[in-house]
């Protein structure tokens, strides 16, 4: 499903002629299989979020290759990667990243609009997806009128609405209390089992990491040998 080969990334600081290169990822190679939940753990600054951003196309790698569904996404230009993201990848962010001026319904409907689906079909899919995450009754609410857990569910609904085979999640429970966190993790597992969605979850939380079929530890930009497989 996702194959990563010799992926490296470094940031360049300073002006021309006086540049400092700060390595973030070193020759990361990794395979994530269909229907897997893979959690990537590591301390702050270990490079785990950078890895997710490189897979999601939010950043360009300095070196290496990423294939998603046999497509080498590292070769795609910005516009093509945007189309690829829309059709193949769902995203869940730590701070939910909902558009505050849109209602829950409109936030979930957004990917369908971007894909050009007609209004009637859109309404049907959006309501169905909101029902799946248990928020149909809140569809007219704006993000500011929802709790953290509800906002994250809206975020998940938005990630799910186009039925992507992969969902990339960056600290999905980072802004939630422990009770809501457990609830959300259960929901992720349910989606994985019922819909066969592959999850790649970045976390520093052991509780979250424990739901992964595989837990991969990143330290100083390198995958640690002997990362735990469950």
């Amino acid at each position: 499903m996702i194959q990563i080969k010799d992926l490296s990334h470094y940031f360049e600081l300073g002006k021309k002629g006086d540049k400092t290169t700060i390595p973030v990822l070193h020759d990361v190679s990794l395979s994530i299989h269909q229907k897997e939940i893979v959690t990537i753990v590591g301390k702050s600054g270990s490079g785990k979020s950078t890895l997710l951003n490189l897979i999601g196309g939010f950043m360009r790698p300095s070196k290496g290759h990423v294939w998603i569904n046999q497509k080498e996404v590292t070769k795609l230009n910005e516009a093509d990667f945007a189309d690829f993201r829309l059709n193949h990848i769902g995203f869940i962010f730590q701070n939910f990243q909902l558009i505050p001026s849109m209602t829950a319904y409109q936030n979930v409907e957004l990917p369908l609009i971007l894909k050009g689906i007609d209004e009637v079909k859109r309404a049907e899919i959006t309501r169905e997806t909101l029902e799946r995450v248990g928020l149909l009754n809140y569809h007219t609410h704006y993000p500011s009128e929802l709790s953290g857990g509800q906002q994250q569910r809206v975020s998940i609904a938005r990630a799910l609405v186009l039925n992507p085979p992969i969902i990339l999640a960056d600290e999905p429970t980072g802004s939630l209390d422990s009770e809501t966190e457990a609830d959300l993790l259960g929901f992720i597992q349910q989606l994985n089992q019922e819909l066969g969605i592959t999850f790649l979850i970045i976390t520093h939380d052991e509780e979250v990491a424990s739901i992964g079929n595989r837990v991969i530890e990143i330290r100083d930009g390198r995958i640690m040998e002997g990362s735990v497989s469950q």
Binding site: E78, L86, F91
Partner: peptide
Amino acid sequence: PDIGIMKAIGANPKV
């Protein structure tokens, strides 16, 4: 921020 979110979920720059 809204543009960033739209791009993240797959909005084409042309759109």
